[in-house]
């Protein structure tokens, strides 16, 4: 199977914003992007799924709280249970936490301000499906843009995440949202479901982003989907 033979679905909810860039990132990495619609309980045979950023269902109630009940999410939960790689970015990370695929929750930024800037991250876990292309400790420059990105969880959950090496990325230099232990992204116990607040899909091409540091996440997943 060639890389182009791998397909990655990108969900569009009402209010999604970054589905277009996520599909572009998938294409740039060499796979085929497949648009998935929130109301459609069908993953159309994709090999992996990306839940993109934006304001799904207007972020009413809580960010991601309504999106988790979308018909397509029922299918994502089922597929994830069987090991399908799933990536949630920003609002997608919030959706995956609300849906229980990832632990913790994202709350209002400590400084109350919406933060939009290029942010340095450090790769902590480089064995998950979405991060194998990074060197341990590598620093990446990737945009963040969110008002509710402060990662919180019970202390015991945070200890468990640290102990099992499930913190994917940490903010370096300046934590944009007051996130616990500077956590920018985490993965599930199997390393297949990943969520992060920064936007790797906005950093795949120096022409349109600060760097191409985000492309590694999509290439990492393709390595798994396309056995060498």
């Amino acid at each position: 199977m060639s890389a182009a033979g791998a397909s990655i679905g990108v969900i569009t909810f009402p209010g999604s914003l970054d589905d277009g860039d996520a599909r572009r990132a998938v294409r740039r990495a060499g796979a085929t992007p497949v648009a998935l619609w929130h109301a459609d309980a069908d993953l159309h045979g994709v090999d992996a799924v990306i839940v993109p950023g934006g304001f799904s269902y207007g972020d009413y109630l809580r960010c991601g709280a309504i999106a988790k009940f979308a018909p397509v999410m029922t299918e994502v939960l089922r597929a994830a249970e069987h090991g399908m790689p799933v990536l949630g970015v920003c609002n997608g990370f919030q959706v995956l936490c609300e849906a229980g695929l990832l632990p913790g929750a994202l709350t209002r930024n400590a400084g109350l301000h919406y933060v939009c800037r290029d942010q340095w991250l450090r790769a902590e876990n480089t064995t998950s499906t979405w991060t194998t292309r990074y060197e341990p400790g590598a620093e990446l420059l990737i945009p963040v843009k969110h008002g509710e990105g402060r990662y919180v969880a019970e202390e015991s959950t945070l200890d468990e995440l640290e102990g099992e090496g499930r913190v994917l990325f940490r903010y370096v230099e300046d934590n944009p949202n007051g996130s616990s232990r500077d956590i920018a992204g985490v993965t599930d116990a199997r390393g297949r479901v990943a969520g992060l607040m920064p936007h790797p899909e906005h950093a795949i091409d120096p022409l349109t982003g600060p760097t191409d540091d985000g492309l590694g996440m999509f290439l990492s997943a393709l390595d798994t989907l396309v056995p060498a």
């Binding site: 109630l61 709280a65 936490c97 609300e98 632990p103 929750a105 709350t107 019970e154």
Partner: peptide, 8 residues
């Protein structure tokens, strides 16, 4: 399950 998020 819906109105509150028991995590927070």
């Amino acid at each position: 399950n819906f109105l509150a998020n028991p995590v927070i």
